[in-house]
Structure formats: structure tokens, C-alpha cells
Amino acid sequence: MSTAFAHPVTVWIVSATVAVVAAAALAIGLLSVSGRVQPALRKELWLRLGSWCVLLPLMIGPVLAGREWTIGAVTLLGLLCYREYARATGLFRERLLSAVVVLGILAVNFAALDHWYGFFVALWPLTTCVLAVASIPLDRPAGYVQRVGLAVLGYMLFGAGLAHLGYMANDANYRPLVLLLLTAVALNDVAAFTCGKLIGGPKLLPATSPNKTISGALGAVVVTASVVALIGSALFGGTGMQAWHWLALFGVLVSVAGQSGDLMLSSIKRDIGIKDMGVVLPGHGGILDRFNSLLLVAPAVFHLIQYFIGFGLDQPVRLFTGGG
């Protein structure tokens, strides 16, 4: 327990998260008692809060529990997100390619667990090559570009991309950073929604996501980048990232990549013609509807920090394969 909360930022983030959930419960309770919200909206708010009460321990718990738990949780998240994606796009009917994507997701997360960076980065092009050739022996050229395109995108997003979040756990001080990313993308969503409602104005991309506004997007960048940069200053003091402009870049990157992930999923859903990717999380939709913002944040932030600092450079490598 003392290791889990060794860094003050971890304590701040966990405390703030608990406080926000408690405040939300209080606010919804007050609104319900006062009768100022419609029953349908009240039910929706309680459903969303209930989902968060289940989700947050599942998100924060593994990060606090340790490296293996974090990577295991990221692996499971990647598989569940891929399942929703494959069912929504119809890729699940291509059993061979789907199996290759699943194996790729397992392999890249194993590389993270093994702390083998060379294999971790090599799996991206290698899996893409396997996906490109796997279905050729079926002698079914019709639909080749579509199925391989969908499979490569699926592996990129839910395997290679998301696994960067797990790989961060190889660093001794990963907990505050991973918790910061998990909570910052949620804050980003809330900030975009709130700023958009308060300020209004022209739509951002009406055909892709009709409820998002330019003011909401810019407001989210300002709010999220400020909070992330501020917390980042406590995380990266004494490193190459401590300069204010790099911290600002870090904050902006989290916000822009988070919103891009959201818009990317909106584009996928609009293209297919569906509203949600699933029904697992009441009030949210599917798992992918909740975690879309994280998909692009993980690799983007990883490589920014990798450039300046690196991950787990003082930790043993190739823990299972033993080649280090």
C-alpha cells in the first residue's frame, strides 16, 4: 500500500477522483430531491454515476496493484475494445484475421510485460505483415483491401497503440503518470461538454459529431492542458521535460489526442450508421465509447516522454525471455 501511494501525485489524483464522484452523487441527489430534473434525465445521471462507480475501481485498482496488474488490465481492455470494433465493422466474420489481431494484441502486451522494447516496437510492422498475407491462402480476393484495412486499423488502435499505456508500467514511477492520463481524458470530455454548453457557438464537425462545438474543443484544450501541465510539473521536475513549454506541449497533446480519439470513434460509428459500440456500460454505451479518448493519447504521450526521459531505463529487461 505504501508503494502504491509513494508519490504524492498518486494520492492527489485518487483523492480528487473519490471527491469528484462523491460530489457528483451529492449533486444528483440534491437535484433528484428538489425535483428540478426530468425523471428520464435523473435516471440517466444515476446510471452514468453507477457505471463510473464500477469503472473507476477497475481502472485505478490495477494501476495501484502493480506492473503486472496494469499490463493485464490494459490487455483485457484492448481485447474488449477490439471485440466491440470487430462486431461493429463486421470484421469478426473474418475469423482468421480476427484471430491474428487477437494474437497480435496478446503478443504486444506480452512484450510490454517482458519489458522487451525491441520486440514491442517490432510487433507493429510484423503484425501488419502477417495481417497482409494471412488471408491470401483463402484465395478470396474479393474484399481483401477492406478486411486487411480493418484488421490493421484494429491492431493499431487496440494492440500496438493501447499497449503503450501498459508499457509505461515498466517504469518505477509509472503510477502517477498512468493515473494522470486515465483521469485527464475523462476531465477532457467533461471540460469539452461543459465549455460547449456554457459558451456555445459554431459546431466543430457537425457531420461527424453534431453535439461538439469549437468552443468546447478549445475550452477542453485550455482546461486539460493547464491541469495536466500543472500536475506534470510535479511529475517531471529535474528532467528534460520540466521546462514550461514542454509541459504545455504535454498538456495540449493529452487534450488534442484525447479529442481526436473521440472524433475518430464518432467517424467510425457514423460511417457504419450506429449510435453506440455496445451496451455493456449503462449510460455510456460500449467500452469503446468510454475509452476512445485513451486510444491515441497512450502512444502520443509515450513517445513524447520516451524522447525526453524514457521508461524503465533502470529496470531489468526481458524478464521472461531472458535475453537481456
Binding site: R83, A86, R87, A88, T89, G90, F92, R93, R95, S98, A99, V102, G143, Q146, D271, I272, I274, D276, G278, V279
Partner: peptide, 26 residues
């Protein structure tokens, strides 16, 4: 492209098991 979502997309687990539109994954 012909994107054809699962016929049972949007059904909760219990409803999906009992649905004639159920399609299996891996």
C-alpha cells in the same frame, strides 16, 4: 466498402443469447 455490423449489435448479453440474430465471435 460493405461494412456489415453484427446482426445482434446493441443487444445485452441475455437478450443476445435468446436472439435469432445472434452471431458468434472467436
Amino acid at each position: 466498402w460493405k461494412l456489415r455490423p453484427a446482426r445482434d449489435l446493441g443487444l445485452a448479453a441475455g437478450d443476445r443469447w435468446r436472439s435469432l440474430k445472434r452471431e458468434r465471435g472467436l
